[in-house]
Design a protein around this nucleic acid. Structure first.
Lengths: 202, 202
DNA sequence: GTCTATACGTGGATAGAC
DNA sequence: GTCTATCCACGTATAGAC
């Protein structure tokens, strides 16, 4: 006497369920692996369910970008505001990020793929843009907080430094994902921390 | 009296023709758009032609990676060896790279996508790795040439600096592709040039 | 070598029963 | 809201004619 019908769930819940499933599938096989069938099956739903949660596959991608790209990688930068020594705090942030990437490469590979896709798709380009701006804003805020709470004074524009820190973190991440060279990555972290901290503080 | 049969070309030529077509198609629609049909059609060949030039689509991807990822972006770094002022020469290289990206964003978007794909695919991961290493090697060589030809002495390991320069260039490129913010990109170029040059020379 | 035709699978999306 | 069945377009690959 198995139950033939599924629990009744709200559309919103179903959407989340499908988005989670989409991430799982994509982590393993990239964006290309995320067919509506594969995603629905992973979510434990029949394929038809897909289309009363999302009008189309494109709609799922849009929702996914909104949800995932804003996923808080930001917190690795929070230490910036707290530690007094700029070099040490940059190094800590970059190392934390690198640890995160090394512990979950598939996710970061996916994240890169999603960013690419957003940048290429006219209808989604604004998401890529906004996400990047938000990220830089956050780092900028941490830098200004550090300054205001008496850590010291920056000799460069805080936003320019934030932009460079974000670029450095993307570069280190992406280099590691290609080469998987721990030593090289740590050397880059050290060099960037020392160089940027010295350039940014008097 | 139109000709019914096509010129007879060597398999090698056909392969190049298909690879060129694949790049064109992918520039416009990303990797996903490159079906064997689309590629063959773009090359002006019947779809069946695909399979006596490449055993499978995977084989085309492998060939494409070998050909495109080694495509010489390297030359933008050649100035490193020639200019005496380290900060100026780093800035020149990064600016040249940025100009290249701005003049052909689709190609660089594709390049990023190909790198991602290579990193994710076990059978191709070594290509991603080798390509990155080759790139860093090249920058490293330029730095040592600069040193040997009397430009000055580096106070850091040349390879570590090369690694950081490559990471910086990837980060700046990728940030620009997402945000399309010229001002931010130029600010990053300036900051990296000044910070890294000062850290690397006594 | 070159091309046509075709087999066969997969994917997105819909109609309509429950 | 939930699910099944199905349509149709597209994708890869192959067989075999020329």
């Amino acid at each position: 006497m198995t139950r033939r019908t599924r629990e009744h769930r709200s559309a919103a819940e179903r959407r989340e369920q499908l988005l989670d499933a989409a991430v799982e599938v994509m982590r393993e096989g990239g964006i290309g692996a995320a067919s509506t069938r594969a995603v629905a099956e992973r979510a434990g739903l029949p394929q038809g369910a897909f289309h009363y949660c999302f009008r189309s596959k494109d709609e799922l991608f849009a929702a996914l970008l909104e949800r995932e790209l804003n996923a808080s990688l930001g917190q690795v930068w929070d230490a910036l505001a707290e530690v007094r020594d700029m070099e040490a705090s940059i190094a800590a942030a970059l190392r934390a990020l690198l640890d995160h990437v090394r512990s979950d490469p598939e996710y970061h590979l996916l994240s890169a793929e999603l960013t690419d896709m957003a940048a290429r798709t006219p209808a989604l380009a604004h998401v890529a843009r906004r996400e990047h701006t938000t990220y830089v804003d956050h780092v900028d805020r941490m830098l200004r907080r550090w300054q205001e709470s008496g850590g010291g004074r920056l000799s460069v524009d805080s936003r320019a430094l934030a932009e460079a820190l974000v670029a450095a973190s993307i570069g280190i991440t992406s280099a590691w994902l290609s080469a998987r060279d721990d030593e090289a990555a740590h050397a880059s972290v050290a060099l960037f921390s020392s160089a940027l901290a010295r350039a940014a503080t008097p």
